[in-house]
Design a protein around this nucleic acid. Structure first.
Lengths: 119, 119
DNA sequence: TGTATATATACAAAACTATATATATAATAT
DNA sequence: ATATTATATATATAGTTTTGTATATATACA
């Protein structure tokens, strides 16, 4: 598998939008989320989140897979080490602050998550 | 000294411009640089670099001091730990690649740097 | 097949960001 | 004082990014 060449400035640019940063932090914590879960957690219209996820994917930070009707997004691990370190430090630094903490809570209060064991 | 409250998304935003990232990486390596040294190294018009430096300073990443006619910019150390880690990882990851490497070379070939011992 | 659901994309409008140019400020030197 | 140099800021313009709305695609299921 070929290592992604990710320019530093493209990395910073793609995370310079509040919703993209929130999506990345949430996905990092939950491993994999579908578009509807992100739409619910972040309170965004569907085309908006789809476009932001497309940008994160195109930058090389996310990968996606389809499962039935749902498309699941997860972190790409095939990124330069320094990018991985930066994402880790950022998540460690901010995941328990607002609005990232509340995004996790919003996800947990989502009633009809696909593929979640009920009760 | 009061710890800077720096929002993650503002941090990513301010580094999402190629010239601001280059300026930060160069300043981190050289400890302190004046506007004319940055103008020379990055090949920018003076008002352009001044405005970018103002943005880095306003975000809390840089501090400045005047010495005679020159204004010197340096890293602010009074930033959240995770921000410091992110800057360190980024610098370690990219400082020896283009165009950051060449920026250092351009600085070294600057003939009339202020306050540099001659020969 | 047709209908429903999840997601993606196109396109125009709105919001935001960066730049060029001119001018202002602040220190120094004569 | 006046002139010079380094830097900062204002303003108009140009360029880029984001959004709302509508539409397209892909799968599931009757």
């Amino acid at each position: 598998m070929m290592l992604m060449t990710l320019q530093a400035v493209d990395f910073y640019s793609v995370l310079s939008h509040p919703m993209r940063l929130r999506a990345l932090i949430l996905i990092k914590q939950l491993d994999e989320l579908c578009v509807c879960e992100l739409t619910h957690s972040l309170g965004l219209a569907q085309p908006v989140i789809s476009r932001h996820l497309a940008q994160l994917k195109q930058a090389g930070l996310l990968l996606s897979r389809r499962q039935g009707l749902w498309i699941y997004y997860r972190l790409n691990n095939d990124i330069p080490n320094w990018v991985n370190d930066v994402i880790q430090s950022t998540a460690d630094g901010i995941a328990d602050t607002s609005p990232y903490k509340e995004d996790r809570i919003a996800l947990n209060t989502m009633l009809d998550r696909p593929n979640q064991a009920c009760c």
